[in-house]
Design a protein around this nucleic acid. Structure first.
Lengths: 274, 274
DNA sequence: GCTTATTACCGTATGCCATACGGGAAAATA
DNA sequence: TATTTTCCCGTATGGCATACGGTAATAAGC
């Protein structure tokens, strides 16, 4: 899905932080606007939640508001900017604790809070994972995440140049797995086909194409019952287990850094285990 | 981007494994086909590589082949199935070592090979990350990955029920970070704007909207020069450092499992560090 | 109350997209 | 040559983002 970049960046920033929308209490001259930016964003989110991101057209959003399509362009430069606003709005829904707010003790619990809230927001808005995270909207939702993660990893003993990559890795992992989980649920809902039914419709695969000699490890694991891929519990397991692995790795990095600040700062090199 | 699900799954599977395309050496009755499935897939990949996934329309693919748009539908059920074929084809380009092939010693080196090859394929085909991985194409490219990762993690001392989630976590992390890196490069290319230029166009953000009191950790890290987010080297660091963290976590899991097979199998619980 | 300036609303037109349908062309068989 | 089979593709339909310009509502100036 395409995102902003064409229009005036300053205009988009003002929209993201609601500069103009908050200011004029009624000093305007002309006709009164029927819609505020928040209403449009909410309508767009509602459409995307209900029918998917592909159905979120300017036409459908306007219809949701009972307005003509082109009316939206009075308030918003274009669809790309609307998407930026939607993303930042739902990211802000996580309501991550800021600097003054009460937060869990310890970085591990904080990251788990981050993962939980992010997972919930993806479940609520399954389209979120379809939007590229490069060149993200520089709004309050995005920066609440940035602040929360950086704050969680700052001052726990990580080498300073590792704080940002560590936060980035956690964000990437949690985002990807939460998006996958949410997309799977959405696929079930809008295709009316459960994961099991999807596999059942493809049982011809195992009969006609899967060669056990070519995929011995998969076949063995399948026989042992350990191959759940493409099942809801399996996706949850990837998220939970994987996050645990990542956090254990971070803990090892902290310990290594504390033991010898002069030694290697990053994760163990190759050959750590055979 | 929408994917298959409407049409006949068996037909799609036959296409993925090229059942029909390989068989008829010329026992056909009617008019000779001008195109093979591989040609169409190659043309579609070429268009997507050059102009992005959004530009990969049936019209443009047909044009690439010098054919009429509707001719494609003789060979392929629809665009969704073509996308499945494209994904599986480029995944197969990694040429991951199979059961008999020579492979690096040790699971760590194998996973690093996987990451390297996956990263390269995303760089070559930046659109790959835009395609959902739920309900993936059940073709040779997908299963080569499955086999390689499962084989890498089987028999290294992981609890059996952790093999699949571990492989899933690695695939999710590598896929997400490689996709982000590739998408960033693509964005630079097709917008003609480097990451630096993109930030420069948004310097108003720091002046008008960024409140240091609200984001103290980000401000501190930025002042310390540790905030590179949205720069090519930063994305590479997230990939490399993050993968190292994940692998260290897996190693810890293996050790824990070896020490006490009766004890907790997964990663350390909460409260491991404050 | 009337005029004018300002602002918002939105109908229409343009040029893309996927794909259903059916007519016509090419090749092998009879 | 006639028939059958297979493939090629022009046209039509309905949906998309959005440029443009007309119209309606409101406040300020008189």
């Amino acid at each position: 899905m395409e995102r902003s970049g064409a229009g005036d960046p300053a205009r988009t920033l003002d929209l993201l932080w609601r500069h103009r929308a908050a200011a004029p209490a009624r000093p305007a001259r002309g006709r009164r606007p029927r819609f505020a930016v928040d209403q449009i964003v909410a309508a767009a989110v509602a459409v995307a939640d209900r029918d998917g991101l592909a159905a979120m057209s300017m036409e459908r959003v306007a219809e949701e508001l009972g307005a003509g399509t082109m009316s939206l362009y009075t308030h918003i430069p274009g669809k790309a900017e609307l998407l930026d606003l939607m993303v930042d709005a739902v990211l802000a829904e996580r309501a991550l604790p800021g600097p003054g707010d009460p937060a869990p003790e310890g970085w591990r619990a904080r990251v788990e809070l981050y993962a939980e809230r992010t997972r919930a927001v993806h479940r609520r808005h399954p389209w979120l994972g379809q939007v590229s995270t490069v060149r993200p909207p520089l709004g309050p939702g995005t920066f609440a995440e940035e602040e929360f993660l950086i704050a969680a990893f700052a001052g726990i003993g990580l080498p300073p140049d590792r704080v940002s990559p560590t936060a980035g890795a956690v964000a990437a992992f949690v985002g990807a797995t939460a998006a996958a989980e949410a997309a799977a649920g959405q696929a079930e809902r809008e295709s009316g086909q459960t994961e099991d039914a999807w596999w059942a419709a493809r049982q011809a695969f195992w009969r006609d194409h899967f060669d056990e000699a070519r995929y011995p490890a998969v076949a063995a694991l399948w026989r042992a019952g350990g191959l759940d891929r493409e099942a809801p519990e399996a996706r949850a397991a990837v998220l939970c287990h994987g996050l645990g692995l990542l956090l254990d790795g971070i803990e090892a990095c902290v310990r290594r850094s504390a033991a010898g600040p002069a030694g290697p700062a990053g994760p163990a090199g190759p050959g750590g285990s055979r």
